[in-house]
Design a protein around this nucleic acid. Structure first.
Lengths: 105, 105
DNA sequence: ACTGTATTTCCATATTTATGGAAATATAAA
DNA sequence: TTTATATTTCCATAAATATGGAAATACAGT
């Protein structure tokens, strides 16, 4: 992951429709959902959904697999994990303590 | 964190200049840097930097503290951590295994 | 008060991007 | 081949956002 890739990945998620699609796929992973199922769950026109799925695929955030007439989409976690690592890289000069989430008891 | 907040936070980071500023502050946290030091390290005009710092502050990604004529900026990790949690919320239906980064030996 | 340094605001221009209906394409079943 | 269902592409319109020089503001030291 480098700056340009990270900007592409973040831009892709920084959009209400795409963020909802991504989170829905995160929650239904690793199985994924067919495009039409995503459209009906999110009440989104097919053309709009298709546009956003293409963006998400291009950014490497989701992957697709055709099965008959259906195209199943699911999360590609490697990109998401690489992004998170990039954002906190060399946190606190490598000390890695100030940037960790606080533990909840 | 909700969808709208996440979109604001992600939009803020999805910009080359702001991403560089944020990462620089991550790496120099928790001390932070004065605005002018950020500008010179990233070779960025002051007006441009100021615009982006305002965006980052508004999104809660950085915090600032005035000290004499200097304004020190540093990362606000709570927002970053909330964003990461939101993105992987209910991952894999709560199973939380498919979405973790792979361990490196 | 005056000078020097630090930071922010103003502003006009240029660029990028989301939307959804209709048509096109792809696959499966009758 | 005909019909039905799934998904994608096309396209014109509308909206949001980054840039950086010049001026304004804020603060400290003399």
């Amino acid at each position: 992951m480098n700056t340009n890739q990270a900007v592409i990945t973040l831009s892709c998620l920084a959009q209400e429709a795409r963020l909802k699609i991504f989170r829905l796929l995160v929650q239904t992973s690793p199985a994924g959902l067919a495009a039409g199922e995503i459209a009906s769950r999110l009440d989104m026109p097919h053309s709009t959904l298709s546009f956003h799925l293409k963006e998400l695929s291009h950014a490497g955030l989701v992957k697709s697999e055709q099965s008959g007439r259906f195209v199943y989409y699911s999360t590609d976690f490697s990109t998401m994990n690489a992004l998170m690592a990039f954002l906190t890289e060399n946190c606190c000069g490598g000390e890695q303590s100030c940037c960790l989430p606080e533990k909840h008891s």
